[in-house]
């Protein structure tokens, strides 16, 4: 093997970028998205207000493409390429980390497909003008509903495990203890996102608004 083989190549940069985009902006956007959509738990009106606020931000297209769509496309596309370079062996070595490795790939794929569909139905078909009513109507379709639930769980898992991976792979959690703590943190994130996501779905499906009491009495 020659020493020229030791020269850095682009794969390092791309891999780091893949890891980084998973947290920023993709992970951060997911947090923002769940947060905004939680307004449905207050009331449809509140949801529509928040939506409209977001739908009318300046430079909307640039922000959407630059900070959301392109990073997501890169993260997902490159992620699939990474998947092809690995070869899961969880049946031979059923250790927790190895399960996470394998599940991270499947949930990534599910999340990618789901997000693509989700964007198509809620962003494209609505021309970016989706309202509470649109979503609530979609949710009446049991297949839609099921796909929503699966997509939310996959995305939440992928983010939680991704945070753990990120902290380990960037050496922010190095010792066994720190990595265990990072794992617990990732788990909390994954579970929290799953719960909040499901609550939002339930809100649309059953016209259920548990935080409506926050609204000032009229």
């Amino acid at each position: 093997m020659s020493f020229t083989a030791s020269q850095p190549d682009t794969s390092y940069l791309l891999r780091k970028l893949h890891s980084f985009t998973g947290i920023l902006p993709v992970g951060a956007f997911l947090a923002e998205h769940f947060w905004s959509n939680s307004s449905a738990l207050v009331s449809p009106q509140r949801y529509n207000d928040v939506s409209q606020e977001l739908q009318t931000i300046p430079f909307r297209l640039a922000v959407e493409w630059g900070a959301i769509f392109l990073p997501m496309l890169f993260h997902g596309g490159y992620g699939i390429w990474i998947w092809l370079r690995g070869k899961s062996n969880v049946s031979d070595y059923p250790w927790a980390g190895n399960w996470l490795y394998t599940l991270q790939r499947y949930t990534g794929l599910i999340a990618f497909a789901y997000i693509g569909w989700h964007l198509y139905t809620e962003r494209w078909l609505t021309h970016g003008r989706s309202t509470y009513a649109n979503v609530a109507e979609d949710m009446q379709n049991p297949w839609y509903l099921a796909f929503f639930v699966v997509g939310i769980l996959a995305s939440s898992f992928h983010l939680g495990a991704g945070i753990w991976n990120f902290l380990c792979k960037w050496g922010l959690a190095a010792t066994v203890k720190a990595q265990q703590a990072a794992g617990r943190f990732g788990a909390v994130v994954g579970v929290t996102f799953s719960l909040v996501g499901i609550l939002i779905v339930l809100s649309f499906r059953f016209d259920w608004h548990p935080f409506s009491a926050y609204l000032p009495n009229k």
């Binding site: 850095p8 794969s11 980390g97 996470l100 380990c168």
Partner: peptide, 15 residues
């Protein structure tokens, strides 16, 4: 370790 087959290939399966 930044070259081909370098540390970036680790995917944290921890096996």
């Amino acid at each position: 370790l930044m070259g081909p087959g370098g540390i970036q290939e680790c995917a944290n399966a921890q096996n």
